[in-house]
């Protein structure tokens, strides 16, 4: 399978007064065309920083990022900005508070000239309904929405662009599991129908188990394990991966058994 996106020895260091933060430390991996690659790991381990570099919000301190075999420039073209979309970790700050939901969804359609002009208003309604919101929410301001409703608007906006790659940073953290299932189904369908590729950043390992093809595990800015989802959950290689899976809060007895089995292995190894 060919790589849609390649990170090659990417690092990012932030200098903050007398503090220096190595947020991402010499990380390389490929994202394959049409896959869902999950990124999981420690809070503060550089996951959102990687997302921001993929989007060109800031450049890496070292290393390169290539998209469809070509190096991504620091200043992205309009075509790049359409091809790679981001759903930000924080849905409140990512929606313009002065714009209605409808205007926020309409903007990318206008900027990228997607669909007939006359059909765009209807398209906005469709996008809302696809994420389980009534079409008349288009007239609302973002601060008249619940956390999960905002998050769904942010997802709908990213999906509106008919992009190639969508980076989703904790996209379902404010959704109940029923609405989450609807959104994950939608993502899966778009992957099948349009060949969309996802980088799916999340702390929810149960979601990862059911949606990802491969999983990248981060700890303190470093990629410690990258394996097929099957392997990560049946035979995790890195001790940090085992610790993570061993700490997932679960609801069924089967899951408790899986967790206990992994922790037993971990204790034997230790």
């Amino acid at each position: 399978m060919t790589a849609l996106l390649s990170l090659d020895r990417v690092s990012k260091t932030f200098t903050q007064g007398r503090h220096e933060v190595r947020a991402v430390d010499d990380v390389s991996f490929d994202v394959r065309q049409g896959e869902c690659l999950a990124i999981v790991g420690e809070s503060g381990s550089g996951k959102s920083t990687i997302a921001n570099m993929i989007l060109g919000i800031y450049p890496p301190t070292a290393g390169t990022i290539a998209f469809k075999g070509e190096m991504l420039p620091a200043a992205r073209t309009l075509a790049h900005r359409r091809a790679i979309q981001l759903v930000q970790q924080n849905p409140l700050s990512s929606l313009n508070p002065k714009r209605t939901v409808g205007a926020s969804l309409r903007l990318p359609l206008d900027v990228h000239g997607l669909g007939e002009r006359s059909a765009r208003a209807a398209r906005v309604g469709e996008l809302l309904e696809e994420v389980g919101l009534p079409a008349d929410y288009a007239s609302r301001a973002p601060d008249a929405l619940s956390g999960g409703q905002r998050q769904r608007v942010a997802i709908a906006r990213a999906l509106a662009c008919q992009s190639d790659l969508v980076v989703l940073d904790e996209p379902t953290s404010a959704l109940d599991v029923l609405v989450q299932a609807r959104v994950l189904k939608l993502l899966n369908d778009l992957r099948k129908d349009r060949g969309l590729t996802y980088v799916f950043i999340t702390h929810d390992l149960s979601v990862v188990r059911n949606i990802a093809d491969r999983v990248a595990v981060f700890e303190r800015g470093r990629l410690v394990e990258l394996n097929p989802t099957e392997t990560i959950f049946s035979d995790p290689h890195h001790p940090y991966t085992r610790r993570l899976i061993g700490a997932v809060p679960v609801v069924t007895a089967d899951e408790v058994r899986l967790r206990d089995r992994l922790m037993e292995n971990e204790n034997e190894r230790a």
Binding site: G132, D176, V177, L178, V179, Q180, A181, R182, L184, K185, N188, D204, L205, S206, V207, R209, N210, I211, F233, I245, V248, V250, V251, T252, D254, E255, L258, R259
Partner: peptide
């Protein structure tokens, strides 16, 4: 009941098909 049935499991099984 629907909510509890829709929790994704770390044991796998895919995304549950339950109406929201």
């Amino acid at each position: 009941r629907a909510l509890l049935a829709a929790v994704p499991r770390i044991t796998g099984g895919g995304i549950p098909e339950i109406d929201d």
